[in-house]
Design a protein around this nucleic acid. Structure first.
Length: 244
DNA sequence: TTATAGATTGCCT
DNA sequence: GGCAATCTATAAT
């Protein structure tokens, strides 16, 4: 877990004006930011797990029922936060994709916390005695899972639905580290799996994870035997010649 | 008007 | 592994 050493630059609207599958894949490794307030430090975390939800043709998507008050952000301009409340207990965060008028989005499912861990623990209402030396296994409780990460970032519908994630001026936004593309190693480890927790279109491989990252919510979910990945022999991982 | 399922989590056995 | 929690949207009476 390393702090983003470089400066963060927000991803622009053009980034999101594309097919959610493309956006989802490229969001891996980017940074979710909750700006500091008078009573809280800035929160940052690396995106390690996302799911693509296509337009009205995707039966698993909230946009499948057509435009309603609840899901209208999905149909609007790209790069806005779509927040919904689920199971009477949890909020989930998405970002709208595709041009204005066309539905589509990406669900954020897990983050690797970078800064503001103390605040995240408070927001989650969990005690981590020695945060600096806490084990990964403990830290995973902060941001691994869509409900957990939303709670860690204090995401609610009233506060964040419709928020422009492309502006640093927003309380919540998404950035990339300037000059840093996703490393080769991370590129190689992007893995697609079926989406989690859905019943419709459950076989489509629209979940994207940084394979092996301990903050991914469910390491490998086969998908009811629907798509038994062809077992490719584990490629010899070359030691990077130079380490950034 | 009532019933049920849901892009989840945490506690219980 | 089972299930309660508990709001919202939509389907069924």
């Amino acid at each position: 877990m390393s702090k983003p050493r470089s400066e963060l630059r927000p991803l622009n609207h053009a980034f999101y004006t594309r097919d959610p599958r493309r956006v989802a894949r490229e969001l891996l490794g980017k940074i979710l930011v909750r700006n500091e307030t008078s009573h809280s430090a800035r929160l940052t975390a690396r995106i390690v797990e996302v799911e693509a939800y296509l337009g009205e043709d995707d039966p698993a998507s909230h946009s499948a029922v057509g435009r309603t008050l609840r899901n209208s952000v999905l149909f609007g301009p790209p790069g806005l936060a779509y927040v919904y409340f689920i199971y009477g207990t949890h909020y989930c965060l998405n970002v709208s994709c595709e041009p204005d008028g066309q539905a589509g989005g990406v669900l954020f499912r897990a983050l690797e916390p970078l800064t503001g861990l103390k605040e995240m623990a408070e927001a989650r209402d969990i005690e981590i005695p020695d945060l600096a030396h806490a084990k990964i296994k403990t830290l995973v409780n902060l941001t691994s899972g869509p409900g957990r990460m939303a709670e860690a970032f204090s995401v609610t519908r009233t506060r964040d639905n419709g928020c422009d994630l492309t502006s640093q001026a927003s309380s919540l936004w998404i950035g990339e580290e300037i000059g840093k593309k996703l490393g080769d190693r991370e590129h190689l480890s992007i893995r697609t799996t079926p989406r989690i927790g859905i019943t419709k279109a459950a076989d489509k491989p629209l979940r994207y994870i940084l394979d092996g990252n301990p903050f991914v919510s469910k390491p490998i979910q086969g998908g009811t035997g629907a798509s038994p990945r062809p077992r490719r022999k584990a490629a010899q991982v070359r030691k990077p010649a130079t380490k950034k």
